[in-house]
Design a binder for these strands. Structure first.
Length: 616
RNA sequence: GCUCCGUUAGCUCAGUUGGAUAGAGCAGGAAUCUUCUAAAUUUCAGGUCAAAGGUUCGAAUCCUUUACGGGGCACCA
């Protein structure tokens, strides 16, 4: 049983083609796929592409090849042919031995560890407001991908870069300084990151008031007349003009910019205030991360890294990858890679966003020696990462071949885009509260956990709510833009986290009832029921699925797999009796099957950061 | 204007390197709890895979054009 079935079968097909038709093309691509549910068998060979080589009809090839494989391979018990499809049935003996010998292993699905190191970046918030639904998708995606890479054998380091400086945090600071009256989160009883966010919102409000007043001045009226060539309606014009107003006329805008300058000059009072307010934010973030069940190996702060990368700019110049313009600015020409010319340093020699990213990449390599780096960042930055990776490649950085932008689509609400200015942002903490409340409401109709303590029940309800939320988000492929309805779409039934949890709980319940069963009898089990055969072949596919999902950086595949496996378990549960089965062999075998399925469900959901309760 | 991405059932989503009659869940109709947890199972209904053309034995999948939606095109981040 050392050789995997797909390899064994394709090798068998090659042998068969040679024996039957004298075909020996080593480059021949044999199409092997898993058999659809409505047909008998577990693996299917597509014979259409073979017609040219064998010079026979697909049905005939299927029949001849099927007979050959049935005779030559002990693992193949039967076959059937439908048009150009040869469906192969694997013997019960093979499946039974696989289940009892391999699928019971606690490390089933895990690849052997290598010492290849990968850095996964995710979350990377700004420090001016609390985390919201968009961050939640980023965090769940980044976390589950990091788990997936770990299961695939990599040594994973999880990091985030915290955008702790800049004009945004200065707005919150200014608002607190002017209107906060020395208030503190503890004093107000508000979660500290939300507290800071309130001042960010307050700044925006005051700024809008100031802007509205200013629009009545004669200066403003002149501007509206002179600088509106497209004849936009007044409201639209002012909306478009807002940035210019902030930067040129606004007193509040000026004050915020002054604060940023003082921060850059390391003014002690400004730094003290900055540290204090960021401290509040980190306290709040820590709590949110804890509830989400994620953690990091290292945090990078933009205040430490925003000047990095100048040495990379210098190195690039020396290598001739970059060039300097007359005004002193440094550029890279990527037009031959179908990208643009991109600035690396300003004419005054200061860094840009991309410069910083070059420096940070190098810093991570120096910190961890990672040969791969994954950036979990929204798809609006696709172009930025193309440019970044291309530059790093040209600089011949040692990790350049292992860079990956884990790009994901925006999360929309049923009402449209989330917009912080319009107050339509779904807050991460509120969202978690809501789903857990929903799980609680739902639990009131049941009594399966009534004999447990209040604490234990609360813990189970928390797990169910979080599973619903996480599964809902992770099951959607990363690159896809998704719609999330915070009220209605957190279902607890059907294709959901709790559905999978329930399947696991069933596998545990049956074991609680029969803890001392002698499992040795399982080896005597002879004939598989259809649902058993289905479950085992699903288990069989798990290790390859984890590897594929990891190479594609796609946790949604694991989510879909867990759902399908849970569905198989539920059907099995409905169709056959476990503890009251006909023979001791059947009881032992089915208990073993339950254990293997339970292990895989727990492992797979664990990769997604979803916990499994013992009861629910 | 240039460029990238998306469009599959009323809604939310799957759909492997091109393969069988395009699949799930929710919502709607109908059944199934004295038996290992009914957060389950079974069943009915629901489709011009955005549109047109092309390649192929075979296209939701690859190519071209179009429509609609979104992103990106700073010495911003």
């Amino acid at each position: 049983m050392t050789q995997q079935l797909p390899d064994l079968l394709t090798a068998g097909v090659r042998d068969g083609l040679q024996a039957l038709y004298q075909v020996t093309d080593p480059n021949l691509d044999i199409t092997l796929q898993s058999t659809r549910k409505e047909f008998d068998g577990e693996f299917t060979i597509v014979t259409f592409p073979l017609t040219r080589l064998a010079k026979k009809k697909p049905e005939q090839i299927g029949a001849e090849l099927g007979q050959y494989l049935k005779t030559e391979l002990e693992e193949v018990s039967d076959y059937n042919v439908i048009k150009g499809f040869l469906n192969l049935v694997i013997t019960d003996r093979y499946w039974i031995e696989f289940l009892l010998q391999q699928a019971q292993a606690t490390d089933f699905g895990r690849s052997p560890k290598t010492d290849e190191r990968v850095v996964v970046e995710f979350s990377s918030p700004n420090t001016n407001k609390p985390l919201h639904l968009g961050h939640v998708r980023n965090i769940l995606l980044g976390w589950s991908t990091s788990q997936l890479l770990e299961a695939a054998g990599f040594d994973v380091k999880r990091v985030q870069i915290i955008n702790d400086r800049g004009i945004a945090i200065c707005k919150s600071m200014l608002a607190w300084q002017r209107y906060g009256e020395e208030a503190t989160p503890a004093g107000k009883g508000v979660k500290p990151d939300h507290f800071v966010g309130q001042f960010y919102v307050l700044f925006e409000q005051r700024f809008q008031e100031e802007y509205a007043d200013w629009q009545q001045t004669t200066t403003a009226k002149t501007i509206l007349q002179d600088k509106n060539p497209k004849q936009l309606p007044e409201e639209a014009f002012w909306k478009a003009y807002k940035n210019t107003y902030f930067n040129t006329y606004s007193a509040l805008g000026g004050a915020a910019k002054d604060m940023l300058l003082r921060w850059e000059d390391k003014d002690p009072d400004t730094i003290t205030l900055w540290k204090r307010m960021n401290g509040w934010v980190y306290e709040g973030f820590t709590e949110t991360y804890r509830r989400l069940g994620v953690s990091f190996d290292k945090l990078y702060y933009e205040s430490d890294t925003y000047l990095l990368g100048k040495d990379m700019a210098q190195a690039g110049l020396e290598k001739g990858v970059f060039y300097q313009k007359e005004d002193g600015s440094v550029f890279v020409d990527l037009t031959d890679a179908k990208l643009d010319e991109k600035a690396i340093l300003r004419s005054d020699g200061t860094s840009l966003y991309i410069t910083q990213d070059l420096g940070t990449a190098r810093l991570r390599y120096d910190d961890f020696g990672a040969t791969r780096m994954v950036y979990t960042v929204g798809d609006e930055q696709n172009y930025h990462f193309q440019v970044l990776f291309e530059i790093l490649k040209r600089l011949e950085e040692p990790y350049a071949a292992g860079l990956y932008h884990l790009s994901y689509g925006m999360v929309d609400l049923p009402t449209g885009k989330m917009k912080s200015r319009e107050g339509t942002v779904v807050d991460a903490d509120d969202l978690m509260d809501e789903v857990i409340q929903e799980a609680y409401n739902s639990s009131l109709e049941r009594d399966a956990t009534s004999e447990l303590s209040a604490d234990e029940r609360r813990e189970i309800i928390r797990m169910i709510g979080m599973a619903a939320l996480k599964f809902q988000i992770i099951k959607v492929g990363p690159q896809k833009r998704m719609t999330f309805d915070p009220k209605e779409s957190v279902d607890l039934q059907g294709q959901t986290g709790p559905y999978v949890q329930n399947a696991y709980v069933r596998t545990r319940a049956v074991w609680r009832k029969a803890p001392d069963t002698d499992l040795a009898a399982a080896a005597d089990y002879q004939q598989l029921e259809p649902t058993e055969r289905e479950l085992i072949s699903q288990l069989y596919a798990y290790p390859a699925l984890v590897r594929d999902a990891a190479t594609q950086y796609d946790p949604s595949q694991v989510a879909m797999y867990c759902y399908e496996l849970a569905k198989g378990l539920h059907k099995f549960w409905h169709d056959v009796s476990i503890l009251n089965a006909d023979s001791p062999a059947a009881v032992a075998f089915r208990l073993s099957l339950c254990r293997a399925v339970g292990n895989v469900l727990k492992h797979g959901m664990g990769l997604l950061g979803i916990e499994m309760p013992e009861r629910m």
